[in-house]
Design a protein around this nucleic acid. Structure first.
Lengths: 225, 225
DNA sequence: TTTGGACTATGAAAATTCTAATTATCGAGG
DNA sequence: CCTCGATAATTAGAATTTTCATAGTCCAAA
């Protein structure tokens, strides 16, 4: 297992290296994002640990870049910032876990293992439901083999339903899911009516079944009969 | 310290209660969201622990509800789901921390303490920068005491800049930040030009300084001189 | 200093999201 | 079985986001 450690505090980097190598891994360290970028261009890593606290860039950029080049690598953010904002953004951007400082080396190790276990099984394949196939990679949806064009909202909606078949989803939770917004107080959630309608129409027009049932007073359900 | 534990596994609920009461807290448990909802209507809690794995709702709805009624309470998600999606959504929805199962009771306790410490000092006050004042609660922005109206994107952009003054933010990271999208492969990021332009205009029209500098070949910087 | 190519700005149109008003539907209680 | 109030669907349009084509600016090399 090859691990890249991006960390500018030499003592910590050293400690991490020592511990993780004891566990049977091979580690490299980089003290700056530039160095990390160079190394990552040369080697393939299974896991990359990034301290987003270092100077020279927000640290989030590098994750995006790394994610692109090293699709197979798991990325774990390590950070002293306890700001939730950074946490969210890090995860959104494509890191796979977040470990706030200070942490026990044992926990770090556990997370690395968990991450790679997770990653091993199923690398986000297609999602299928009868005549509907969703390819999350390409953000493409096929109905009866024919591609249909969905807007971002419709796509998110469809995925949410497919992830929760036969389960009543409240209008509230649907609304939260759509408006990626940190959803403090959505004053109104009527907008989901529109999206529901549009998604229904596009699916039906393409010849798919009518799976979105409204549950009076509750919300909606992707109904599998 | 009054804590509400929403957890349907009796053994775990019991263990959590015992441990946390030893630490000097007062705990209540609820095995279902409904029960939790009822209790939360009667008592005020300082902290609420939610297992989003329980049946009957996605678990995220309840967080939203609780957040609304118990603004002062810290909410920590506890979950066996290792799906990153849930993690993100939970944090976005308004929970304050996320603790994956299994966990040590000591870690839970540590997080509760950390949360309340964080919460104690400044409950997300205003953000000020010279003539600009942002009130995250109200999502309102004042320039020279006069409110200005920003769209969601412009607001997010402004906050991102204010959080990173005098620091070059790449176009990529700005784009990721705006399109709340899990940003896999944004085909184009030109749209930020528009948002930058609009934000600049609104700020200048309101009489604020011209702090957004473009850094050739790099990105943008909120320039404090 | 000039020039060319890459980067950034701008304005307007297209697409999408969200709002608001109206109409239709549900289901409990009479 | 009806009626009424609440919930959902529909529609059109306003607001916002995103794209696109065009124009301007910067930097480096000649």
């Amino acid at each position: 297992m090859k691990i890249l450690i991006i960390e500018d505090e030499p003592a910590l980097a050293q400690a991490m290296t020592t511990y993780l190598e004891q566990e049977g891994n091979l580690c490299e360290t980089a003290a700056t994002f530039e160095e990390a970028w160079l190394k990552s261009g040369v080697y393939e890593y299974d896991c990359i640990l990034v301290d987003i606290g270092l100077p020279g860039g927000t640290g989030l950029d590098i994750i995006r870049k790394l994610k692109k080049e090293h699709k197979q690598a798991g990325i774990i953010i390590v950070s002293a910032k306890d700001s939730i904002d950074d946490k969210i953004t890090g995860l959104e951007i494509g890191s796979d876990d977040y470990l706030p400082k200070p942490f026990h080396l044992a926990e770090l190790n556990a997370r690395i293992k968990a991450l790679l276990r997770r990653r091993k099984f199923g690398g986000e394949p297609q999602i299928r439901f009868r005549e509907i196939v969703v390819d999350p990679q390409k953000q493409e949806v096929l109905v009866n083999e024919m591609p249909i064009r969905l807007t971002r909202s419709e796509y998110a909606l469809l995925l949410y339903f497919l992830a929760n078949p036969n389960r009543v989803l409240t209008k509230e939770s649907v609304a939260e899911h759509l408006s990626g917004d940190s959803a403090d107080l959505l004053d109104t959630i009527d907008f989901i009516y529109s999206h529901i309608k549009n998604l229904r129409k596009k699916l039906m027009d393409a010849g798919a079944g009518d799976y979105i049932k409204s549950v009076y007073g509750m919300g909606y359900k992707w109904s599998v009969t």
